[in-house]
Amino acid sequence: MRAVEFAAVILAMLVPFIAIKTHDMATYIYWTVVVAAYLAYTAFRRWDVEQL
């Protein structure tokens, strides 16, 4: 399950290399949104250590 999560984040981060070709702030904003979303997920999901 965790491997799927890691793979999904890495693949999402690679999207601009293939799919975003504009010369505006699109790539910049895209990477910001992906990392911010992953940070929010990290903050709100339950960690293993919390189940000890």
Binding site: V9, I10, P16, T27, W31, V34, V35, L39, W47, V49
Partner: peptide
């Protein structure tokens, strides 16, 4: 913008490693 991507990859990787291996 590649410089930003390079640093964002670092941050995403760090969040992955810290949230899984940190505990």
């Amino acid at each position: 913008v590649g410089a930003y991507g390079f640093e964002m990859f670092y941050l995403a990787g760090t969040l992955m490693l810290l949230s899984y291996y940190g505990p």
